[in-house]
């Protein structure tokens, strides 16, 4: 038996060249996506280089309290004399890390559940879908708030809580993709060749199901960053000693009538990052030809 008698199933490799050129044309045309890539790139660079770029220790208190933006303190200082620019710069690390880590986690486990449910059907599907439906009854953010309330604050807990809240979105998309794909001829072909279920799922079905999953992942990163910021803002975030954007805003909230910069800049950072990711997600949606209603 050999593969020669059958057309090779369209795996990631055979689809890739077509997609790559499409990516290039979409991103070359789309100004918003270029803006998004540039701004996000700047923030990623800032996060990585925070130890070198940060002019002050983000937690160092000085007597220079609540002074406005100046040459010395680019974005001003807070009520404890800490440099706002340094704090926001360090906060970038947490925000981006939480965004990527949560979505990575939710993606791996959500897609796993969705693929299993869609591929095997029967009681496996029933159990998984029961769980997914159950989770649907709660708004994502309420799930995250509740989980952090139960398991306590901290970086790991926040990541797990937000990831769990997003799990059902990925599972539902993966399942519906698998349900359509498994009827396709190339899956029959792979089965006839005697490939294992595992191989069919990972090598044949999954690569073809990736487009809506990638788009969903991009959108989810922006929601995860907003979610983390909201949690820290409510005091349910990473910790009170780590400067995160939400926490900086929450700390500065009481002083905004005298120090507007404490209310403006941390939120501006959140908005710029989330906006960039949304722009990129929109371009990806075009490039991968995913309809808004599929998600």
């Amino acid at each position: 038996m050999s593969d020669v008698t059958l057309d090779p199933p369209p795996t990631a490799e055979t689809v890739a060249p077509k997609r790559k050129s499409r990516f290039r044309t979409v991103f070359a045309r789309d100004r918003k996506a270029q803006f998004g890539l540039a701004v996000l790139g700047l923030f990623i660079l800032g996060a990585i280089l925070a130890p070198f770029l940060s002019p002050y220790d983000p937690n160092e208190m000085t007597l220079n309290m609540m002074s406005g933006p100046s040459g010395e303190n680019l974005l001003g200082t807070d009520d404890l004399g800490r440099d706002l620019f340094s704090r926001i710069l360090w906060g970038t690390q947490i925000s981006l890390f939480v965004g990527v880590a949560t979505v990575g986690l939710a993606l791996v486990f959500g897609v796993l559940l969705g693929v299993l449910a869609g591929y095997y059907g029967g009681w496996i599907d029933m159990i998984i879908m029961r769980y997914i439906d159950l989770q649907w009854a709660f708004p994502n953010f309420i799930i995250a708030v509740y989980l952090v309330a139960v398991f306590g604050t901290g970086l790991l807990n926040v990541i797990v809580a937000i990831a769990l809240a997003f799990l059902d979105d990925f599972a539902r998309i993966a399942r519906s993709m698998v349900l359509t794909l498994k009827e396709e001829q190339f899956v029959d072909a792979a089965r006839v060749q005697g490939f294992s279920d595992m191989r069919i799922m990972l090598r044949h079905i999954l690569p073809n199901a990736m487009a809506p999953i990638i788009v969903q992942a991009t959108v989810s990163v922006s929601y995860a960053i907003l979610g983390e910021a909201s949690l820290s803002f409510l005091g349910l975030g990473v910790s009170v000693d780590t400067p995160t954007w939400g926490l900086i805003l929450s700390d500065g909230r009481s002083f905004i009538s005298r120090a507007w910069w404490l209310g403006v800049f941390p939120g501006l950072a959140i908005m710029l990052v989330v906006l960039s990711i949304n722009f990129i997600g929109d371009a990806l949606r075009d490039a991968l030809d995913v309809r808004e209603t599929d998600i």
Partner: peptide, 22 residues
């Protein structure tokens, strides 16, 4: 619409307070 999607609601709230209340 993009701005609205990307703005954290609590931040918009703070900005509104700075402008209209403070």
């Amino acid at each position: 619409a993009f701005l609205g999607l990307s703005m954290p609601d609590f931040w918009l709230a703070i900005i509104l307070i700075i402008i209209f209340a403070a």
